[in-house]
């Protein structure tokens, strides 16, 4: 019981996820700054930001829905924390695993997006309203390719468990080469999921200030920001577990490999963020439906055929 609780709350659960999330955010900002010829923030910056927001006054707008306004950040964070339980950090030892947890993870992944939408909606500010509508519109664009790209490898592995997939691919690494298109689709739509440039329309600073979070301040904003960095860890871990399966069986070595893999995913995402202009909503939807989705569909068909041959 105690060990299960430790697993869920400390390592590799919530506490580890938050700490690693803050570190990944630092890495992301540092790489982004270096790519722009700046020196970037010091290593403790995300932690300082988080602590500062905890100490700030929390203002709730008079015409916002008080209860929803308070509860949504917590829902968002807890959904991400729950999803992280099913993702393997150490080899073969996620905090919990069962057949079909991939579906659960994907399902839980939509909750932060939906709570962001609701947060904007209940803020009753024009910028927040437009931002939240964009959040939802964008979700319909990237969700399909993201799901399909994550499901395609599952077809070959013939398991719906993240851990199972990771095991299958680490035993048969060559099969993984088949999934390379899906890997890139997942990375790019993952960028959309995380609402980072070029898909940062919901919080497009120059258009709608800060999108759904425009009215949030203090602790509630801190929780939302924490939820965003945890989502970053979750996406990076999920992609590296499904598409970069390299496992040795040695827990320490696997943990190191996990760090390397997630950081590699993050570097790619940071590069993507720095090299592109923000897309417009119509361009983003077109891009997702005309380019990403067909690639993912073709991937699924190929994987189905191969599975039939096997």
């Amino acid at each position: 019981m105690l060990s299960a609780l430790t697993k869920i709350l400390v390592f590799p659960g919530f506490l580890f996820m938050s700490a690693y999330g803050l570190f990944l955010e630092y890495l992301d900002r540092k790489v982004y700054a270096r790519l722009q010829h700046r020196s970037g923030p010091p290593w403790y910056q995300p932690l300082a930001d988080f602590l500062k927001l905890l100490g700030k006054e929390t203002i709730i707008p008079a015409n916002a829905n008080q209860r929803m306004f308070r509860i949504l950040p917590v829902i968002s964070l807890s959904a991400v924390a729950t999803a992280f339980i099913y993702v393997p950090v150490l080899a073969k030892a996620p905090s919990a695993s069962f057949e079909g947890d991939l579906i659960i993870v994907l399902y839980l992944l939509t909750i932060p997006t939906v709570s962001l939408f609701l947060a904007g909606w209940y803020s009753r500010s024009v910028y927040a309203t437009i931002g939240s509508v964009r959040t939802l519109t964008q979700m319909f664009a990237y969700e399909v390719p993201l799901f399909m790209a994550l499901l395609a490898p599952a077809l070959i592995a013939q398991t719906w468990s993240v851990t199972g997939m990771a095991e299958f691919y680490s035993q048969n690494p060559l099969y993984h080469l088949l999934n390379i298109p899906a890997f890139f689709v997942a990375l790019i739509s993952g960028q959309g999921k995380l609402e980072r440039a070029p898909f940062d329309l919901p919080e497009a600073e120059t258009e709608i200030v800060a999108g759904p979070l425009v009215e949030y301040s203090g602790k509630l904003l801190a929780i939302f920001k924490m939820s965003a960095v945890c989502e970053l860890v979750l996406i990076a871990s999920l992609i590296s577990a499904v598409f970069l399966p390299l496992m040795t069986g040695n827990p320490l070595l696997d943990f190191l490999l996990y760090l390397i893999k997630t950081m590699a995913v993050l570097l790619f995402l940071a590069l993507l963020r720095s090299a592109m202009a923000r897309l417009r909503m119509d361009q983003m939807i077109k891009f997702c439906w005309r380019i990403l989705t067909p690639i993912a569909v073709v991937q699924i068909i190929i994987n189905l055929v191969i599975r039939g041959v096997l």
């Binding site: 700054a33 700046r38 970037g40 010091p42 700030k56 910028y127 425009v214 009215e215």
Partner: peptide, 22 residues
């Protein structure tokens, strides 16, 4: 805020919403 001076070294980020600013 730009490369020559880079205030982000000191943790400065430019925010758009008054609610987020210090």
């Amino acid at each position: 805020l730009t490369p020559r001076f880079d205030l982000e070294r000191m943790g400065v980020i430019q925010q758009g919403s008054p609610r987020h600013a210090d």
